[in-house]
C-alpha cells in the first residue's frame, strides 16, 4: 500500500476560470439576493403590517380630532408623529430583519451554502448588513409615506414637505445604521436565532430605556454611552430651541439631553464599534 505523504503541493489555476469579484462587489451581489429573500418573506409582510397598523392608528386619531392640534405647523406635526415615532419603526425593523441575520446562518445552516463559496466572510456580513438595512429603509419610507399623506391633507401641499423632515430623516437613517450595527453584534454573538432576537428586542424595546433612566435618576451621570439616549436628536430638527444639555427638575434630579453633535457622535460611534465588532466576531465563528 502506498503511504500518504505531504509531498509537493498542487499548483495554482492561474489564468483559468472567471475572475472572482472583489470583496465589495461580492457584498453587493449577496445583498441583492438577500434583500430579494427579505422582500418575499413573511417577516417583511409582518413588518409592513406593523407599519400600516401604526400609520392607520395615527391617521384615525388625526381624522377623529381633526389634526389633533398638530396642523398648525409642519414642525409640530412631524415633530410629534415622525420625530417621536419613527424610532419604533426602526427598532422593530432592526429586530425583524437583523435579529437573526448572522445567528440564522449558523442555526438554519444557510451559512453552509454561502461559506463554501470563494467569498470572504466580510462580504457575507456586509451583504447581509446592507440587505437588512435596505429592507428596514423600505419600511421607514412606508411610514414616511403615510405621514406625508396625512401631512398633505392637514398641512396642505406647501407645508407638507419640510426641510426639517428631511434633516430628521437623515438622522433617523444614522440611528438605523447604529441600531443595525448593535443588532448584528448581538446576532454574531449567538448561534441561536431565538436568543439573538430576544436579547435585541429586550434591550432596544425597553432595556436601554430603563438603564438610561436609572443612570440619570440614581447615579446622576450622563448616559452618553447608551444608544437610546442619542435617539432624541431625531426630533431636534423640528425644535426652534434645543433642550438644555442639563436641567435640574423636581427633587434635584438632573436630567440630561444630548447635544446635536453628541447625539450624532453616539450614533456614529455605535455604528462603527458595533458593526465592526460584529464582523470581528463573525470572522472568528466556526460552523461546528
Amino acid at each position: 500500500m502506498s503511504t500518504p505523504e505531504a509531498g509537493a503541493s498542487g499548483y495554482a489555476r492561474s489564468g483559468e476560470g472567471p475572475a472572482i469579484p472583489d470583496t465589495a462587489r461580492q457584498a453587493l451581489i449577496l445583498s441583492r439576493y438577500q434583500l430579494r429573500d427579505y422582500l418575499r418573506s413573511r417577516r417583511f409582510v409582518l413588518m409592513v403590517a406593523i407599519v400600516v397598523f401604526i400609520g392607520a392608528i395615527l391617521s384615525l386619531v388625526l381624522a377623529k380630532y381633526n389634526g389633533a392640534g398638530l396642523s398648525s405647523s409642519s414642525d409640530a406635526f412631524y415633530g410629534t408623529l415622525w420625530g417621536g415615532g419613527v424610532y419604533v419603526v426602526i427598532v422593530f425593523a432592526g429586530i425583524i430583519f437583523g435579529g437573526d441575520a448572522i445567528a440564522g446562518e449558523f442555526q438554519n445552516k444557510t451559512g453552509y451554502f454561502l461559506m463554501g463559496l470563494p467569498v470572504k466572510r466580510t462580504s457575507v456580513y456586509a451583504g447581509k448588513f446592507i440587505a437588512a438595512t435596505a429592507a428596514s429603509v423600505v419600511c421607514v419610507l412606508l411610514y414616511l409615506g403615510i405621514l406625508l399623506g396625512n401631512g398633505f391633507y392637514y398641512l396642505g401641499a406647501g407645508a407638507a414637505l419640510s426641510g426639517a423632515l428631511f434633516e430628521s430623516f437623515a438622522i433617523a437613517m444614522l440611528y438605523l445604521l447604529a441600531l443595525m450595527g448593535a443588532v448584528f453584534l448581538f446576532s454574531s454573538l449567538f448561534k441561536n436565532s431565538l436568543y439573538a432576537v430576544l436579547v435585541v428586542a429586550i434591550l432596544f424595546l425597553f432595556g436601554f430605556s430603563i438603564i438610561d433612566e436609572l443612570l440619570q435618576g440614581l447615579v446622576h451621570i450622563e448616559p452618553w454611552f447608551i444608544i437610546d439616549y442619542a435617539r432624541q436628536v431625531i426630533g431636534y430638527p423640528f425644535l426652534t430651541t434645543l433642550p438644555p444639555h442639563t436641567s435640574t427638575g423636581m427633587f434635584g434630579i438632573t436630567t440630561y439631553n444630548p447635544t446635536y453633535a453628541e447625539g450624532l457622535a453616539i450614533m456614529g460611534g455605535y455604528f462603527l464599534l458595533t458593526a465592526f465588532g460584529g464582523l470581528a466576531l463573525f470572522e472568528r465563528e466556526e460552523f461546528t
Binding site: A12, R13, G17, I20, Y33, D37, K109, T110, Y112
Partner: peptide, 29 residues
C-alpha cells in the same frame, strides 16, 4: 490546488465546488 484555504480562501475555493452538511438555501429564492 496549492493554495492555503486559511491564507487565501478565495483562490483556494475558486476552482472548488463543495457540499458540506446539507446546507439550507434562502427559502424565498
Amino acid at each position: 490546488n496549492g493554495h492555503s484555504v486559511r491564507a487565501d480562501r478565495k483562490r483556494a475555493l475558486a476552482s472548488c465546488g463543495d457540499l458540506i452538511e446539507s446546507p439550507e438555501i434562502y427559502p424565498s429564492l
